[in-house]
Amino acid sequence: MKKIFTLVFATLMAGNMMAQMHGALSFAGASTANVLTVDVENASDTVRFEMVSTSAGNITIPQIVKDDFVIPSFTIENVAFAMGTNHVITMDDQTFASKVIVDGKEKNITGSSLTGTYNMADNSLTLKAVFTYGSMPFDMSYDIKAYYIKPVASPITVNVGGAFEYANEGVTYNVRKYMEDDVQKLDVQIPTYTLDNTVMGNLTLGTYTVKGLTYDEEKGGFYRDYKNDGLTFHFTAENEGKKTLDGDYSFNDTKDNNILVKYNGNKVEDIINTFQMGAMPFAIVTKFNSQATGITSVKSDKKNDGRIYNLNGQVVDEYYKGVVIVNGKKYIKK
């Protein structure tokens, strides 16, 4: 029976991985690059991981900058990994090589060590690479723990001032779920999108990122009031080919500026963003058209919210060992 279970699990794992091999996955998190006694820290770096088979993938390291010294982004091809238990794949220690072009000249990247894990249960990627760049006489190490950035695409409806409603047929938010100090959080990147033929003309609302949403039991989703976060975004209004507004605007810290992200299992069901910019006299509320996600019902069971629970129903982080429940299913974390 145990052998059959193991075979079924391995088959499902392989199928899950193969389903993700349609493009590179992006993971964002805090990173540290180190050479000798110098640390280069980045609070939000983005690593890309593209599976090319069920046993190998390509990893792209982002650009590393320290003052005037720059190591360009580079891709490590055919990184070997093995599927393990508990939805974890492991990249055992291995060497690697890559090349970049700088000012028309080729520079070698020689890696003496690469290790990492990809945990599909909590969508986290850990990675450590040790390498030399060009004629650099010393090894540099690059460490990151990052979480999957999930693109969420849907038509949205936009209500302006409670009286006027408009729509955009295709908007993609990037959502990152991660653990920080034993608390599960979300970062949400609101993209640039347009609204045509409004009472103010054709509008373009620029991108910005709201960080640190936490789960609110009463609201039934991950929530943040961001009016005091110091965020800005670019806004333009155009009438008959002439721009009447074109600039960077902040959010009115005396009005409602908040975002709520609701899940159905591990799928984003809705994103409701309420905001009011500068001295604008009315609020704007954007909502997903949830039917476009293929979800027709809402489950209120908090055990199906994508978080990790122990057998006592308590929320735990990804480092918890033992039997856990994720979206109503039991797993063993070792």
Rank of each mutant, 00 (worst) to 15 (best):
T157Y: 08
M13H: 15
A80K: 12
G230H: 01
T274P: 12
T11I: 14
R224H: 03
N304A: 04
T85K: 14
G328H: 02
Y142W: 04
G29M: 14
Y193G: 01
G134V: 06
M18C: 10
V171M: 00
F235Y: 07
D39K: 10
D182G: 06
D317Q: 14
L245Q: 05
K299E: 11
G212N: 10
F131N: 07
K329A: 04
A163E: 00
L311V: 08
T209P: 01
G241C: 15
V160D: 01
E106G: 01
I109K: 14
T172K: 09
S53C: 07
I271V: 05
A279Y: 14
D39E: 11
G134I: 06
D187V: 00
R176A: 06
L7Q: 03
K99N: 05
N34L: 15
I271H: 09
N16Q: 03
G134E: 10
E238R: 05
N78V: 02
I284H: 00
E77Y: 15
V199K: 08
K303E: 02
N304P: 03
K185M: 12
N202E: 03
A19V: 10
K333H: 12
T286N: 05
S26P: 12
V52S: 13
E77M: 09
E180G: 03
G247E: 13
T85D: 15
T296D: 01
N327Q: 03
F69Y: 11
A163P: 01
V316E: 13
D317V: 08
T204M: 15
I156P: 11
T75N: 09
V52K: 15
I101N: 05
I332E: 03
G57Q: 10
G328L: 07
K2V: 02
T236R: 13
L12Q: 13
K255W: 10
E217Y: 08
S250C: 07
T54W: 03
V324R: 03
D181Y: 10
L36Q: 04
N108H: 06
Y319K: 11
G57A: 08
D229Y: 05
N119E: 04
A279N: 09
V285L: 02
N228H: 11
